Simulated assay, not measured.
Amino acid sequence: MRAGKLDNVIEIVRPGGYVDDGYGNQVPVDDTVIATMRAQVIQASTEEFMRAWGASTERAIIFRTRWLDDVRLSDKVRHAAIDYNLKEVKPIGRRRGLELRCSA
Rank of each mutant, 00 (worst) to 15 (best):
G93T: 12
R94K: 11
T32S: 03
V13M: 06
E11T: 06
G24D: 08
R64M: 13
D83Q: 06
I92N: 05
V9W: 07
Q43R: 13
L98R: 02
T46F: 00
V89E: 04
S45C: 00
R96L: 12
R14A: 09
L6G: 09
W53K: 14
V19Y: 04
P91G: 05
G4M: 09
E88N: 04
V41S: 01
L68F: 10
N25H: 11
V29Q: 14
V13W: 04
W67E: 11
G22C: 10
S45V: 07
S56H: 03
S56K: 09
A52D: 14
V19L: 05
E99V: 01
G54M: 03
M1R: 07
D31S: 06
C102G: 03
G16R: 05
A3G: 04
E48W: 00
N8S: 15
A39P: 09
R59M: 03
V89Y: 00
E47Y: 00
P91Q: 04
N8A: 15
V13A: 07
R72N: 08
K76L: 14
P91K: 04
E47L: 02
D7H: 06
E11C: 00
A44Y: 04
G97E: 10
V13R: 04
M1T: 09
Q26M: 05
D83E: 15
Y23N: 11
M1L: 12
E48H: 00
V27F: 07
N25P: 01
D70S: 13
Y18P: 00
I10V: 13
H79M: 03
N85V: 08
D30G: 07
I10W: 01
D21P: 02
I10T: 06
D30I: 00
N85Q: 11
N8R: 15
M50Y: 06
L73M: 13
R59E: 14
E58G: 00
K76M: 02
A44S: 14
I10F: 05
I92A: 04
A39F: 05
R14H: 05
K76F: 07
V9M: 11
D30Q: 07
A35R: 13
L100G: 03
R38Q: 10
Y84V: 01
G16Q: 04
S45H: 02
I92W: 00
